[in-house]
Amino acid sequence: MIPLEYFVALSMVLFSVGILGILTQRSAVRLLFSIELILNSANINFVAFNSYLRSTAASNAAVSDQYLGWAFAMIVVAIAAAEAAIALAIFISLYRNFGEISVLDIFSLAENTEVD
């Protein structure tokens, strides 16, 4: 069995990549991709800890308890699906109103100030 640390380290690196994307990207679509990366790194942690607890400590627990991590991972997947649908709708209406989806160029309430 693969040690738990490996999973957590992978999740950590993937999370950092997602954070890097959120900090550096300007396109709204790519920001969404970075958020998906972060959600996936969280999912890895849920599943890994669930598997670990199932194999060591909670083996005498009830069946529904042994798969709680799966339930959380499924919640994450469903939330991601809902989020993707809403984001697609928002992007399309943004694009219809502004003609672009670069997050730095979209102002409607603020003055057109230079941001860098």
């Binding site: 969404l32 991601a80 699906a81 993707a84 649908a85 697609l88 399309i92 943004l94 694009y95 989806i101």
Partner: peptide
Amino acid sequence: VYSGGIAVLLLFAGRLTSYT
């Protein structure tokens, strides 16, 4: 769900908004 369904949504999002 993720790489079959959500990915198609994301692809549509990338394609329908022709981002320069």
